[in-house]
Amino acid sequence: MRFRAHASIARALLAVAWLAPAAARAHQATHEVARGSAIAVRALEDGQGMAGAAWQVFSPSDAARPHQQGLTDTHGWLAFVPDAPGAWRVRVVEEDGHGLDVLVEAGPTAAVPTPRPAGWQRSAVGVVAVAAAFVVLFVTYRRRPRA
């Protein structure tokens, strides 16, 4: 009789031990690491990261409600995990009115954006463009005398 009681208790304990892992999910916080699925964007102002700036990301399917928002890290980085391919809008707003509003392509065929020209290249291209505008005006007026 006593042996049968012990056997029942043992069976019950075995059943609890077998079922416990499934039931224990109730208050369990887990995590998973997926490498290569997030898009990281660095917001730069004059080559320096925009640290602590407010940012929002809008999915291609909802232009009105942000998919995600937050603050950039100390180096100006933000990251999001797109759940659909297409052009994702990224806005970064600093208090002084600086910031950016760009489209970032997501998906297997997304192209990597070409880097912006360096400071001296910008100056050179700008000077040439401005000079060209004035040279065109000057030459036009010189070649066609007043009627």
Binding site: G119, G126, V130, A131, F134, L137, F138, R142
Partner: peptide, 21 residues
Amino acid sequence: VETLPVVGTLTALAFVVQTIA
């Protein structure tokens, strides 16, 4: 027309100084 070269040069200068952070 006589002032265009100087105005153009100063405009280009303004462009350059605006690129200096």
